[in-house]
Amino acid sequence: MKLALGPLLYFWPREQVEHFYRKVADLPVDVVYLGETVCSKRRFLTRADWLRLAERLAEAGKEVYLSTLTLMESESELRTMRKLVGNGAYPVEANDMAAVSVAAEAGVPFVAGPHLHTYNQETLDLLASLGARRWVMPLELSAETLAQMQQRCPAGLETELFVYGRMPLAFSARCFTARNRDLPKDDCRLCCGDYPDGLPLGTQEGERFLTLNGIQTQSGRVCNLLTELPRIGKLGVDVLRISPDSRHSEAVIRAFHEVMTGEVSPEVAQQRLDETTGEIYCNGYWFGEPGMATVAGQ
C-alpha cells in the first residue's frame, strides 16, 4: 500500500503552501496530488508555481499528479483544465467528466477522482478503457461495497481510499463563506483565505455539523480509518489518501506510515493521534452507516 496526500482543499497564502510542500518532500508519503480543486478564484499560486512544486516533489521521489477543478462553469475554467491536462510532464487527477474526456482524447493517464460517479464495476471498466490508472472511491460508499467493487476491478486499475480528513461532501455555485460575510461571490475578497481549515458550521445546539470551505461543503467531523488499516489491506486497496490540513498533517502521515510499516499497532497510533489532534472522528460511511457516525471497529 502507498500513502497519498490529497489535493489541498483550503486557500492558504503562497508562502504557507510552499512551506507545507517543502515539508511534505521529507515526509513518508508516496503520492502527492497538487493543484486547486475547489475555486478558480484562488490564484495565489500560478500554474507555473504548481509545476515548480511538482518538480521539487518528483525530485524528492514522490509520484505527483495535478488535480483538476471539480465544478467547471466557465470557458476560462475549461481552458485552465485543458492546459493542466496537457502539461506534458505529470498525469492528472480528473475530478469531472470534462477532464476525463480531455485526458482520454489526449492519451494522458489519469486518476478518476472521488467526485466522479464511480459506483459500480461497469463504470470502472469504462474509466479503465479511457485511460484511468487509478480510481478513488466515492466518499459515501462502504467497505462492503468496496469489497464487491474489488472482486471485478479491471486489471491494472489501482484503488484509492479516502482515509483521513474532513470529507468534501458537496459543491455549489454559491460561496457559503462569502455568504456568511455578507459578500457577493463576484466580490468575495478571497475571504475563504481567513479560514485555513474551513469555517465551522454548527447546529443551534452547538454541535459541529459541517465545514464551509468556499463553494465546497465539508463534513464537520474528520473521517479517520486508521484503526481499519488491517481490513483495508485485506481488501486490496493500493493507495490511502490523507487530506491536508494546516495543523496535523505531519502527525497524521506519520501515524498512518507507522501502522503500515508495522512499527506501531493501529490502537497505539490512534491513541497518540487523539492526544495530538483532539479531533472528533467519524467513520460511518465505511461501516454502511451515516457518514457522521462513529462506529467502534472489530
Partner: peptide
C-alpha cells in the same frame, strides 16, 4: 437544489441515504 446535483453527499452524511445512493 443549492448544491451541484449528483455531487452532494450531505444527506448520506447525516442520514445514510443520499440522492446518489
Amino acid at each position: 437544489c443549492v448544491m451541484v446535483e449528483g455531487r452532494c453527499a450531505l444527506s448520506s452524511y447525516a442520514t445514510g441515504e443520499s440522492p446518489n445512493t
